Amino acid sequence: MKQFIDFIPLLLFFIVFKTEPRDIELLGQSWVLGGIFSATAVLIISSVVVYGTLFIVHKRLEKTQWLTLLGCLFFGGLTLAFHSETFLKWKAPVVNWLFALGFAASHFIGKQPLIRRMMGHAVELPDSVWTKLNIAWVAFFLVLGGTNLFVAFTFHEIWVDFKVFGSLGMTLVFLIAQGVFIARHIKPAPEDNTKEI
């Protein structure tokens, strides 16, 4: 459910971006709905609403949610202020690279790699496997950020499609690969061989 909630602002951004631009009257003002700039405004507003609601309900946001929200506000704000989509194109790469930095730094800061802090309550793995898994996350976020940057500045006509669906596809493939990797290292629980008398 959490992943779907985090996806709402991006989905709304995509829908508005794909809408043919048209003028609408709202609150006594004329607004353009459709295209990159109104989609960016919708992304900012929906992110504030979604993460604000989560904060009110749970009294906290996860660090990844804070980073995503701040990235959206910063790069989206610059996009609207300077009327240039270039700033928004940098959002996904920078946020992904900051995630990579967080996972990499956790090897040196704290007692456990970040992935173990996130998943250690659900699965038990040897220390060496946690380290490899954490390094895999670093590599994944570096590649995802680089791919987003390449597509955004090379394939202008499809960069929004890739931002929404390409990144999601890459993430799903990585998560499946992670699941297979983890499954190979999980030790089955010992069977209870006691017989009832």
Rank of each mutant, 00 (worst) to 15 (best):
H58Q: 13
T19F: 03
M119E: 05
L168I: 14
F108Q: 03
E85K: 00
T154A: 14
K163P: 01
K132P: 02
V151H: 09
G35W: 00
L10T: 07
G102C: 11
L88R: 04
L27T: 01
L142K: 05
M119N: 05
V94Y: 01
I197C: 08
S167L: 10
E85W: 00
W137A: 02
W159G: 08
T147N: 05
H58Y: 14
Q178V: 11
S106V: 10
D23H: 03
Q178W: 02
H156D: 14
D192Y: 12
L10N: 08
V180S: 04
V16C: 01
P9F: 03
I45K: 02
F17H: 01
V143D: 02
T40Y: 03
T68L: 10
I186T: 15
W66A: 03
T68K: 00
P126R: 10
I15H: 01
V32P: 02
F14G: 01
L133S: 10
F140M: 05
E157H: 15
D6M: 04
P9G: 06
A39P: 03
A100C: 07
S167I: 11
G110N: 10
M119H: 07
M170D: 02
F165R: 07
G169S: 15
R116V: 01
G110A: 10
Q178D: 03
F181E: 04
P21Y: 02
M170W: 05
F75Q: 02
E85T: 00
L10Q: 02
E85C: 00
W130E: 00
V94E: 03
S38M: 00
P113I: 11
I176Q: 04
L125F: 10
K18L: 02
I45R: 04
D192I: 15
K111E: 13
T53N: 08
R117S: 13
V160C: 07
I15R: 00
